[in-house]
Amino acid sequence: MKRWLSYISRTGSPIEDVPKMPELAPNAPFYAIGDIHGSTALIRKILSQIEDPPALRAAVVFLGDYVDRGEDSAGTLAQLYDLSRDTSRPWIFLRGNHEQMLLDFLDSPDTAGPFWLMAGGRQTLASFGIGTPWQNMDAENLPRLRDTLREKLGRDLEAWLRQMPVSWKTGNVFLSHAGTDPALELEAQTNDTLLWGKTRGKAGPRADGIWSVQGHVIVETPQISNGRVFLDTGAYATGILTAARFEQGKVNFFST
């Protein structure tokens, strides 16, 4: 069932909360979808609410964090991978910090494994049918665990994860998993910033007038603040996966 926010009409609302920012102006209407975290059943629910004329084919951008924490990371990855091969519209899958942790584990299991397992990797492994005892996760056993996961993923899925971009831009709208550092030009943003939100600048509007759309930070309801749009409503814990439609001067939120 659609859960439209009380302050957003079905046809969209003008952006008015940050008068210093220029009007939001993407090159064309598009959609963005917040963090999924293994909540496979919510993907089709949110996609069913996208209502475009057949000729529009607006892009749909997923903001990363498809794995970990939720119960079905394997199913989420399979569904999104299948969707990536659908030619009905442009689909953009951005990398989140949890995909980065998974890839780091594949590359360096003994060093990256302990942190990833603590941050939700155990749930991802379980979704692939891989058990992880709390003991004996050492430099000998972690590579074996990595090898098992790599076999379960398969080459195609691993390659797809590795080619995911960390950002996407249209007009004066910039999308990444964890936002941007407002003190730095877009070209100077680091992967630590785009994936983890590690910034040196204050959380104010960007001086260049670029809007930032992100997930990563869990909010009770989607928010627009200081030129930033937040879309992570903690789907794995709340059952609420949030998306938004962006067009000239408007954002229209909707959720499961």
Rank of each mutant, 00 (worst) to 15 (best):
residue 229 V to T: 10
residue 44 R to P: 02
residue 189 Q to R: 08
residue 138 D to M: 01
residue 19 P to A: 07
residue 198 K to R: 12
residue 189 Q to K: 04
residue 23 E to N: 09
residue 104 D to F: 03
residue 176 S to K: 02
residue 140 E to M: 09
residue 84 S to I: 08
residue 118 M to E: 14
residue 12 G to T: 02
residue 78 A to F: 07
residue 141 N to Q: 14
residue 215 G to K: 04
residue 21 M to G: 02
residue 246 F to D: 06
residue 243 A to P: 01
residue 118 M to W: 10
residue 167 S to E: 10
residue 27 N to R: 09
residue 246 F to Y: 12
residue 228 R to S: 12
residue 197 G to F: 03
residue 207 A to M: 11
residue 64 G to V: 07
residue 61 V to R: 04
residue 227 G to A: 06
residue 115 F to W: 10
residue 145 L to N: 05
residue 208 D to E: 11
residue 240 I to A: 11
residue 32 A to Y: 03
residue 74 A to W: 03
residue 139 A to K: 13
residue 239 G to I: 04
residue 6 S to A: 13
residue 100 Q to E: 14
residue 203 A to P: 10
residue 56 L to S: 14
residue 51 E to G: 07
residue 188 A to L: 14
residue 21 M to R: 00
residue 160 W to V: 09
residue 100 Q to T: 11
residue 214 Q to I: 00
residue 41 A to D: 15
residue 250 K to P: 00
residue 171 G to M: 03
residue 80 L to K: 10
residue 211 W to E: 02
residue 8 I to Y: 15
residue 65 D to I: 06
residue 55 A to S: 12
residue 149 L to C: 09
residue 125 L to P: 01
residue 228 R to G: 06
residue 113 G to H: 12
residue 128 F to K: 00
residue 187 E to G: 14
residue 141 N to A: 12
residue 169 K to M: 12
residue 95 R to L: 13
residue 253 F to V: 05
residue 171 G to E: 02
residue 107 D to N: 08
residue 23 E to S: 15
residue 33 I to N: 01
residue 38 G to I: 07
residue 144 R to S: 11
residue 219 V to S: 10
residue 239 G to C: 03
residue 128 F to R: 01
residue 34 G to Q: 00
residue 181 D to W: 04
residue 246 F to P: 02
residue 91 W to A: 02
residue 4 W to M: 10
residue 73 S to R: 00
residue 61 V to T: 06
residue 245 R to A: 09
residue 143 P to M: 08
residue 169 K to V: 13
residue 192 D to L: 09
residue 126 A to S: 15
residue 116 W to I: 00
residue 175 L to S: 05
residue 70 G to V: 05
residue 85 R to C: 13
residue 190 T to V: 11
residue 223 Q to H: 03
residue 179 G to M: 05
residue 75 G to H: 05
residue 132 T to P: 00
residue 65 D to Y: 10
residue 107 D to T: 05
residue 69 R to S: 07
residue 191 N to D: 15
residue 36 I to W: 02
residue 153 L to K: 03
residue 42 L to M: 08
residue 171 G to N: 02
residue 213 V to N: 05
residue 10 R to S: 12
residue 26 P to Q: 04
residue 12 G to R: 00
residue 219 V to T: 13
residue 235 A to V: 04
residue 252 N to H: 11
residue 155 R to A: 13
residue 179 G to F: 01
residue 238 T to G: 08
residue 55 A to G: 01
residue 159 A to H: 13
residue 8 I to M: 14
residue 254 F to I: 05
residue 24 L to W: 01
residue 164 M to I: 08
residue 173 V to D: 00
residue 135 Q to S: 14
